[in-house]
Design a protein around this nucleic acid. Sequence first.
DNA 1: TTCACTGCAAATCATTTGCAAGGCC
DNA 2: GGCCTTGCAAATGATTTGCAGTGAA
Lengths: 135, 135
Amino acid sequence: MNNISQYLLGYGIRPSIQRIAIMRYLTNNRTHPTVDEIFEVMRKQIPTLSKTTVYNTLKLFVEQGAAIYIGIDEKSGRFDGCVTPHGHFRCKKCGKIIDLDMEINNLLPENFHGTIDEADFYIKGTCEDCIVKNN
Amino acid sequence: MNNISQYLLGYGIRPSIQRIAIMRYLTNNRTHPTVDEIFEVMRKQIPTLSKTTVYNTLKLFVEQGAAIYIGIDEKSGRFDGCVTPHGHFRCKKCGKIIDLDMEINNLLPENFHGTIDEADFYIKGTCEDCIVKNN
DNA sequence: TTCACTGCAAATCATTTGCAAGGCC
DNA sequence: GGCCTTGCAAATGATTTGCAGTGAA
């Protein structure tokens, strides 16, 4: 019983081989991958893996709160294994997504009276690396 | 020459019948509609209207800065004719999207050094109406 | 044995593209 | 005439669904 199994169990998720592998990938690689990126990398380790399972698994993770869905990319959804509230920046040049440390809950407007399940701050522009490279 | 034509010309967009109608719809109805919602309403006024034209037009508006794309809905893109920076809240119960008045540019983290093209603050949860109705 | 999980294939849905016709300068 | 705009149909790509096989409690 490894710590990823423990993590999943803490969110009420049964740890199967596939689920452990996908969660391990998410936590080891903070690249905010798409379903396809996860699938392509994981199939090398688990050749029988189906893309449906990747979809199922990520959907389950998000529903149970073990991962978060990031909608900053218009083309396809991205996922983050870090569930602590923070913002996201996407570079329009290189496509990279960078985490922004922000206390999002402090930023809520005063005149807002609903309950909050999720909050994300999305920024798009050009990252420092691309500015330096003059891309 | 009406004021919507003027508005579009100010963004370098030639005002065709379709473009004026779609921009008028966006500014008169602050409902953050999807392409499909716009198409269904507009085809009653312009029966020959094609969904492709709605896509083309909204894409052009966003490129030219006359409207903004809202990625808060995982299913499909939404659009806002108000280009002044502000946040968005989506109620998970009724699906409604509400504008949040916020000076988004004041919220950027200090350690961030990229350039910014777009910024949006997304919140999801339950709106006041749905809380009152106990939906 | 039962029930959850997996994986394949087919279906669906949003969006894009190719291309021909129409309209404006 | 030439170019921009439009609209239809087909293509694409992401995601979901149906269903049968597998495996673990």
